[in-house]
């Protein structure tokens, strides 16, 4: 079973996020970049399926040079090879354009299954996975909490309000990950050593036969106009009392008398 995993490099959520001078992007200097956490689940799931069924795991990512670090992390976890679409013309692409690029890259390689994170935690658009499936004309199952490979099919569990839905799709298919799908493995030290020697192919838009006029910051169909930070946090108030009962009573008193919420 040949599996493709779509990954994105995103700012570490613990990073110091500051809005840049243009008011519509973030300052990138002091940021640590990591693999999107939902993509970690995708890589882990792909590796587990490969371990059970054989085959290969290919990582595909779009981004600037430093994106290589994230692809190497996935290779260190155990993926076999990476494809890095690194082209300045692709920078600033919106979700649809990103999906076009990824779909073009995936189309060129054999695959039975594509796994992607449900969303990237930087922009939270939830669009790329579904759009790639659409562009490739294959079924798409979103927010998968459990996946099972059957003969020529995939059976997925999705959580819905109050219960679970079980859905099946024929392969090739694409699904996106939900928290709880698995516990991603650590990149081991020997794994990191081996990853240095694994193939990592760099591609440009031209290599993929893509028209630069369809992608990139200048051709966004959706434009970010402004970014705003959440309101400043108010100081946390710790309720101190001798017993849990007294703490609960004080909490109720505060909610009732001061916050006037109950």
């Amino acid at each position: 079973m040949d599996i493709v995993v779509l990954v994105k490099q995103v700012p570490d959520t613990e990073s110091l996020v500051q809005i840049a001078g243009d008011g519509a992007s973030i300052k990138k200097d002091d940021i640590k970049w990591v693999m999107n956490p939902y993509d970690e689940l995708a890589v882990e799931e792909a590796l587990r399926i490969k371990e059970a069924k054989g085959g290969s795991v290919t990582i595909v990512s779009v981004g600037p040079q430093k994106t290589q670090e994230t692809i190497r992390t996935a290779l260190a976890m155990g993926a076999d090879k990476g494809i890095h679409i690194n082209d300045p013309l692709a920078e600033g692409s919106d979700s649809l354009a990103t999906a076009k690029i990824l779909a073009a890259a995936v189309k060129a390689i054999p695959f039975h299954l594509i796994i992607a994170g449900q969303r990237a935690v930087d922009e939270d658009n939830y669009q790329v996975g579904a759009a790639v499936a659409e562009l490739l004309g294959i079924p798409h199952v979103s927010l998968v909490a459990k996946a099972e490979i059957l003969d020529g099919k995939i059976r997925c569990q999705r959580a819905v309000e109050g219960g679970t839905v079980v859905v099946e799709a024929t392969l090739p298919a694409l699904f996106t990950t939900q928290r709880g799908l698995n516990e991603p493995r650590y990149a081991s030290l020997p794994g990191i050593m081996k990853a240095k020697k694994k193939p990592l192919e760099a591609k440009t838009l031209a290599d993929l036969g893509l028209d630069p006029a369809a992608v990139g910051a200048a051709h966004r169909k959706v434009v970010v106009k402004a970014l705003r930070l959440p309101p400043e946090r108010k100081a946390v108030r710790m309720i101190q009392a001798e017993t849990p009962q007294a703490i609960a009573a004080e909490l109720v008193r505060i909610l009732h008398e001061e916050a006037k919420l109950i």
């Binding site: 698995n182 516990e183 991603p184 493995r185 650590y186 081991s188 030290l189 020997p190």
Partner: peptide, 23 residues
């Protein structure tokens, strides 16, 4: 020796346990 990863509060290995290596 590097530290083991994926060990729980009680010192038991978790599903993502990754033993340390000897450098």
């Amino acid at each position: 020796r590097t530290g083991d990863k994926g060990v729980n509060k009680d010192g038991k290995p978790k599903s993502n346990f990754e033993p340390g290596v000897d450098l």
